[in-house]
């Protein structure tokens, strides 16, 4: 029972896509998803409606996926998929910038990864949303890796992300996301690393003094929809869904360009110091960790291909 068929006689039945997103309701990502939903409803004359349930109302990405497999929900938008090949995109210095990331994700390199997601939970990638780069904020001035020595940094509790920060001599600490602000405020940790927009949304600027633009990770956010749901749609609706997603992706990319400068300006006016660090020195320490994991997770040569061919 993937689609709800209401009494819309004559138009071949209507379809509702319920999609759970972990991002906050007001975030640019959710705004992009909402634009997508509005455009899809308009172009399809409400034959296909998309309901976005944001703020993690349906639980984490993995919980939402369980619900997709059960057929209660049809889509998910988030940074974690449970597919090691995709989740590894959060490692350091894989991509030069967001365009590089999008180019790779739309190429044949990413095909086996998306197939792995279909294989795992029957979820197909219909959109790759750009995010602002992951960057370090701190209460300690960090210009080069040596400054991060012994720094307590909140990072996601994932093996390779922990190893990346241990490689620069920091002490990674796992703290639940709703505690990050409080932990920074009270000093349980000195620093955190996250996508700039997420850090901004969490008001990290209120409790930090320095932003070090390490920009080590350009990590995508995936919009996945159940294959069973997609197959239940007539061809024209499938096309509308994909077309409008591309439009939403482009809208988001443009918005993020301005958001990047806006956030940094806002933080500067709040009294934070924006530091352009020695990125090469960070890359030199972090990239070997990425290389070491990449061979295991993606197989030999894939990381090199990403670096050389795109």
């Amino acid at each position: 029972a993937c689609t709800s068929t209401s009494g819309d006689a004559g138009s071949g039945g209507s379809h509702e896509l319920i999609l759970g997103a972990t991002s906050a309701g007001g975030s640019l990502e959710v705004q992009a998803l909402q634009r997508w939903a509005d455009a899809v409803a308009e172009r399809s004359d409400d034959r296909l409606t998309v309901t976005i349930l944001a703020d993690g109302q349906l639980g984490s990405e993995l919980e939402t996926q369980e619900a997709i497999i059960n057929g209660d929900v049809h889509g998910v938008s988030g940074g974690v998929t449970g597919v090691p090949e995709l989740d590894f995109l959060a490692a350091a210095y894989i991509f030069r910038d967001a365009d590089h990331m999008l180019e790779v994700m739309r190429s044949d390199v990413a095909e086996p990864w998306s197939e792995a997601w279909v294989e795992q939970s029957g979820v197909e990638i219909v959109g790759v949303l750009e995010r602002l780069p992951r960057t370090l904020t701190s209460n300690v001035r960090v210009e080069e890796p040596g400054d991060a020595d012994g720094l307590d940094v909140r990072v996601p509790n994932t093996e390779f992300q922990i190893d990346i920060w241990e490689a620069v001599g920091a002490t990674p600490v796992g703290i639940p996301s709703q505690e990050v602000y409080s932990a920074l405020e009270t000093g349980v940790v000195d620093a955190q690393e996250n996508a700039l927009d997420t850090a901004y949304a969490n008001a990290v600027g209120d409790v930090q003094q320095y932003v070090t633009l390490t920009e080590h990770t350009y990590m995508p956010q995936f919009v996945g929809v159940s294959v069973a749901f997609l197959e239940s749609l007539p061809d024209d609706l499938q096309e509308i869904l994909r077309d409008e997603m591309r439009a939403a992706e482009e809208w988001l990319s443009a918005e993020l360009d301005t958001a990047y400068t806006d956030i940094l300006e806002e933080w500067e006016s709040q009294g934070l110091e924006i530091i352009e660090p020695d990125v090469d020195a960070f890359r030199e320490l972090m990239y070997p960790v990425t290389e070491q994991y990449a061979a295991d997770i993606w197989g030999d040569g894939v990381l090199d291909r990403i670096q050389s061919e795109f």
């Binding site: 993995l62 996926q65 369980e66 497999i69 059960n70 974690v80 449970g82 989740d87 795992q120 939970s121 996601p156 509790n157 994932t158 093996e159 796992g174």
Partner: peptide
């Protein structure tokens, strides 16, 4: 059976414990 089918594919991100 249903829980097995939809949970066994999912693994916790850090330690790799299956759900």
């Amino acid at each position: 059976p249903a829980v097995w089918a939809s949970s066994s594919v999912l693994v916790s991100p850090s330690l790799g414990i299956p759900r």
